[in-house]
Design a protein around this nucleic acid. Structure first.
Lengths: 223, 223
DNA sequence: TAGATTGTTAATCGATTAACAATC
DNA sequence: TAGATTGTTAATCGATTAACAATC
């Protein structure tokens, strides 16, 4: 057993569906077909139907999907009908920005704990949270039963912070440090590296993609 | 013609290779095999060889890849041997964090222009750049010939800012706003949405993946 | 030479898209 | 009823991995 797990690509699309459904809901649109949703999200309608069919029969033939029913179900699938406390390590400018985000938006996921190694920051309030000392992280995380962590510390500290979080029970991590984190198999890591993103953009900005430049050019002669 | 373009997945891995090669270089390691690199990056060695082979023959049979030679070549492929000015729209906390990042690291990509709609921020210096008025963006971008843009404005403003950037010649965008940007075909967009990332983490944190819970549960009865 | 490792072709795997019977 | 649209199976496409001759 264990087999049939849901493709990662599907899980990554669910939040996009959700975001759009919420917009449709606000516009008072009661029903949407995979065709229309696909047009609006720039996705193939068959893909949308297939994605949703992994989890249940949410649509009605001839009619489409009820927006609020589907919204509720996707929220349930992603476990956004529960409330998740999120721990942040590293409250530099990026960490502060994340606290802000977390404050305003979504209720299901909130940064409730923020830690920093700089003792001068301890006690400061950012968004809604008070910065705690990194030295207390392990203890606090264990007590609060937190499973989701965000790493926004310098690259040099990331692996160690990661291990501390994992040891304290965190099983899902969003990592902003430009490092490949080593984690046990049961831990899920998503990486968000600004530098890498920009670097791949340079390739596309140069137009290197659009030419059929099969000219395999090397910088210098062989070494 | 036009056909054989490089898979996106390959372009996204190149920055990771680069990052690791730079580390090897610092450690004074002159040569690396796809086997070792794969171990360290958690990738299949065949995949690494295949990725690199899209662009040239950078290795030596029986020996592996010369670290600095390969570094130079990947830099060239990604056009990081040129210097890219990057424009930032939206200098909230996130935008400021990005300016910081941009200052310290990489020379090839630097945020050289930052714009904000809040006139009170105009003139402020963040990192190395002076904040300019959003009203001047179009003109300034055209003059400076910028091709890479970063969008860190509120969702409600993102599409319009995007269009202004594209009209001014930007062809590659990194979008932090939780919106699907509509762009012409020649423009490349990467999306970095904190909320969506967190939402998919909740799924994994719940352990929903590890059970073969084929129980297609719905929240309520059909509507 | 013998061992290591590439570049590349073939095999596999997974994800996307098309097609269509079922049915609202 | 006729038209629309689902859920699902089959076909296609693309990306990853294995295998191996070439060769350092």
């Amino acid at each position: 057993m264990k087999e049939s797990s849901i493709p990662k690509s599907v899980i990554l699309r669910l939040p996009l569906y959700l975001r759009h459904l919420e917009e449709l809901n606000q516009r008072g649109i009661p029903t949407v077909s995979s065709q229309v949703l696909g047009d609006e999200l720039d996705l193939n309608p068959a893909q949308i139907r297939k994605d949703l069919a992994f989890f249940g029969d949410f649509g009605r033939k001839g009619i489409g999907y009820n927006v609020s029913f589907l919204t509720q179900n996707i929220q349930h699938i992603l476990r956004l009908d529960e409330s998740w406390d999120v721990a942040l390590a590293g409250v530099g400018r990026l960490g502060m920005a994340l606290c802000d985000y977390s404050k305003s938006r979504h209720r299901a996921l909130t940064i409730t704990h923020a830690f920093d190694a700089n003792e001068e920051k301890v006690g400061m309030v950012v968004g809604d949270v008070t910065i705690l000392s990194a030295r207390t992280m392990s203890t606090v995380l264990r007590q609060s039963n937190i499973r989701i962590g965000v790493i926004a510390v310098p690259a040099s500290a990331a692996q160690q912070v990661c291990e501390e979080m994992v040891d304290a029970g965190v099983t899902a991590l969003l990592n902003f440090a430009p490092v490949l984190l080593k984690v046990p198999k049961h831990v899920h890591v998503r990486s968000a590296d600004f530098t890498s993103e920009l670097q791949s953009l340079a390739y596309y900005a140069s137009g290197a993609n659009s030419h059929s430049s099969s000219g395999k050019g090397t910088v210098h002669e062989k070494w």
